[in-house]
Amino acid sequence: QVNIAPGSLDKALNQYAAHSGFTLSVDASLTRGKQSNGLHGDYDVESGLQQLLDGSGLQVKPLGNNSWTLEP
């Protein structure tokens, strides 16, 4: 069960990665100043990332080996 409060997208993504045990490689300029609506409930990694990114204009991309990145 994930419980991440709304706020900074950077912070939300870092909390989610730490909670879910995956690696997220992101260029900080992509997420700077963006906000997230947070995340509450049970999600697989990709669904949770998509939910956190909702409205940010960013997309999640798998890199393999439980690693992910973001792209515009």
Rank of each mutant, 00 (worst) to 15 (best):
Q51A: 14
H40E: 09
L52N: 00
Q50C: 13
A5N: 08
N66L: 06
L13S: 01
K11H: 13
Q1W: 15
E71G: 06
V60P: 15
D27C: 13
A18M: 12
V45S: 04
G64Q: 05
P72D: 07
G21R: 08
D27L: 08
Q51D: 04
S36M: 01
H19P: 04
A18G: 06
N3G: 03
Q51R: 14
N37V: 09
G55H: 05
D27M: 07
Q1A: 12
N66R: 05
L24H: 03
A12P: 01
A17K: 08
A12K: 02
L70K: 00
G64W: 05
S8T: 10
V45A: 06
S25L: 15
L70C: 08
S67H: 14
K61G: 03
D44F: 05
A18H: 10
R32T: 10
A17I: 07
L53G: 00
S47K: 11
N14E: 15
A17S: 07
V2D: 02
G21C: 11
L24P: 03
N65S: 09
G33S: 06
N66K: 06
G38F: 02
A5D: 09
N65E: 09
G7P: 01
K11M: 13
S29A: 12
L49T: 00
D44E: 07
D27A: 08
S36F: 04
T69Y: 09
G64M: 05
S29E: 13
Q59Y: 11
G41P: 00
G48I: 05
G21V: 03
I4H: 02
H40P: 01
L13F: 01
S8G: 06
A28Q: 10
D10Q: 13
S20N: 11
G38P: 02
G64H: 04
Y16W: 14
K34M: 08
L24W: 07
G48K: 00
S8N: 10
D44T: 12
Q15C: 12
G33T: 04
Q59G: 08
G7A: 07
Q50F: 09
L70A: 06
T69I: 13
S47F: 09
D42P: 08
A17D: 03
K34S: 02
T23C: 13
E71S: 08
D27G: 05
G7E: 02
A5W: 09
S8A: 12
G33D: 10
Q15H: 08
A28I: 10
Q51P: 01
L9N: 00
L30S: 03
N3S: 11
E71I: 14
K61Q: 05
L49E: 01
S29D: 12
V60R: 03
V2F: 10
L58K: 00
G41D: 03
Q15T: 09
G57A: 04
N37P: 13
I4G: 03
L58I: 06
Q50H: 10
K34Y: 07
G48S: 04
G38I: 02
T69C: 10
H19N: 09
E71T: 11
D42T: 14
P62H: 14
V2N: 03
K61C: 10
L63M: 11
N65A: 10
V26T: 05
L13E: 00
D44N: 09
Q35M: 15
Y43E: 03
L63D: 07
N66G: 10
G57M: 05
K34T: 01
S20E: 11
L9W: 02
S29P: 04
E46N: 07
E46L: 15
A18L: 13
T31Q: 01
S56D: 01
K61D: 00
S67F: 10
Q1C: 15
I4N: 01
K11P: 02
G7R: 02
G57P: 00
S25E: 14
A28K: 11
G41F: 04
S67G: 08
Q15P: 02
Y16R: 02
N37A: 12
T69P: 00
P62G: 09
